[in-house]
C-alpha cells in the first residue's frame, strides 16, 4: 500500500515538473462552434482552464453547459474549432488514444450516475478494477481512503438506492477521484441540495482540488456557492461568453446580463415573459391576426 502511495506521489511530482515546463493551461478551447439539429448551441467561443485552479462555468438553465462538458470529454464533437486537453486535441486523436486520455479526466454527473446494481464500494472500485491490475486488498484500501475523503466510509456496503441524493453525489465523487485524475468536471453539483449538503460539497470540491493537485471545472447556476471557491469564472449566455474573470472582476462587471444573472433579477435582458400575443387580446379570445388589424384600426381611429 505504501508503494502505491509512493508511486502516486512521485507521479504527481513528475507531472508537476513536466507541466511547469509546459503552459499552465490544461484545457484550451479555441473558436469552438457546436450546433445540434439545426440549433446553434455555441458560436465561436474560446475559454481556457488553468491547471490546479477551480474554474466555474455559469449561465442560465438550458444554455448547454452540460454539453460543454461532454465536448471537453470527447463525447460530442464540435462543428468547428479545437478542444485541447493536456496538449492533445480531443477530437482528432484515435479512439484508442481518446480512451487513454479519458483516464486522466473524470466527470461527476448531476444525478451521480452510480451503477444501481452494485454497492457503493463496488462503484468506487470499478475504475480501479477496470484500469489497474492492483490486488483486491490494495483496491480495498484505496476505496476506503477515497470514501473517507468524502466522508462515506461507513456507507461502503449500501446500495445506491439506499442513499440520499447528497450522499449519492458524494459517492460518485469518490468514484470520480478513484484513479487520481488530472481534471474533474462537476455538472451542476449543487442542484437541489439542502444547505448542509451544499456546504459539504463546496468544502469537498475546494479541499480535493488542493489536496490532490486537481483541476476542477464546475458547471452550475448556483452563483453564490461557486463564487466562494472559484479562482476564475465564465458566464455563458446566448451562445457565447458574456463575461469572464475572477469572482471579484465578475461582481464588478458592467454588463446588464451579467448583473441580472448575479443578482437573480426576475426581469432584465433575459425576459420574464415567453414571447406571446398581448394579454388583452388573449383574454378577449381574439387571434393574433384579429388583434393586429384591430390595433391598426384602433391606432388609426384613435382611442
Amino acid at each position: 500500500m505504501t508503494l502505491y502511495l509512493e508511486q502516486q506521489c512521485s507521479q504527481i511530482h513528475h507531472n508537476k515538473e513536466v507541466n511547469s515546463l509546459m503552459s499552465d493551461t490544461l484545457v484550451d478551447i479555441q473558436n469552438m462552434s457546436f450546433s445540434r439539429a439545426e440549433r446553434v448551441i455555441y458560436n465561436d467561443i474560446s475559454l481556457q482552464v488553468q491547471k490546479g485552479k477551480i474554474t466555474a462555468v455559469m449561465g442560465p438553465s438550458g444554455i448547454g453547459k452540460t454539453t460543454l462538458l461532454k465536448i471537453i470529454g470527447g463525447q460530442l464533437s464540435p462543428q468547428s474549432g479545437s478542444v485541447v486537453f493536456a496538449g492533445e486535441n480531443i477530437h482528432t486523436v484515435s479512439r484508442k488514444r481518446l480512451y487513454e486520455v479519458r483516464r486522466k479526466m473524470s466527470m461527476l454527473f448531476q444525478s451521480g450516475a452510480l451503477f444501481t446494481n452494485i454497492s457503493v464500494f463496488d462503484n468506487v472500485a470499478f475504475p480501479l478494477r477496470e484500469h489497474t491490475k492492483l490486488s483486491e486488498s490494495i483496491i480495498h484500501t484505496v476505496v476506503m481512503l477515497k470514501l473517507e475523503a468524502v466522508g462515506l466510509r461507513g456507507a461502503a456496503d449500501l446500495m445506491p438506492s439506499e442513499l440520499s441524493g447528497g450522499m449519492a453525489r458524494r459517492a460518485a465523487l469518490a468514484r470520480a477521484i478513484a484513479l487520481d485524475p488530472e481534471l474533474i468536471m462537476y455538472d451542476e453539483p449543487f442542484a437541489g441540495q439542502d444547505p448542509i449538503s451544499m456546504g459539504v460539497l463546496v468544502t469537498l470540491i475546494k479541499q480535493l482540488n488542493r489536496a490532490l493537485d486537481l483541476t476542477s471545472i464546475v458547471v452550475t447556476h448556483d452563483v453564490t456557492e461557486v463564487l466562494e471557491i472559484a479562482d476564475y469564472a465564465y458566464i455563458l449566455a446566448e451562445k457565447s461568453i458574456i463575461g469572464e474573470g475572477t469572482p471579484a472582476q465578475i461582481k464588478a462587471s458592467k454588463s446588464e446580463l451579467v448583473q441580472q444573472f448575479l443578482q437573480g433579477n426576475a426581469d432584465g435582458p433575459v425576459p420574464f415573459h415567453f414571447p406571446a400575443p398581448s394579454l388583452a387580446d388573449a383574454l378577449l379570445g381574439k387571434s393574433t391576426q384579429d388583434s393586429a388589424s384591430n390595433s391598426t384600426a384602433k391606432s388609426e381611429g384613435g382611442r
Partner: peptide
C-alpha cells in the same frame, strides 16, 4: 437516462 452509459464512457470503459 440516468447517465450510467455516459459515465462509463467518461471512465474510459466502452
Amino acid at each position: 437516462a440516468t447517465e450510467q452509459l455516459s459515465s462509463l464512457e467518461m471512465m474510459a470503459v466502452d
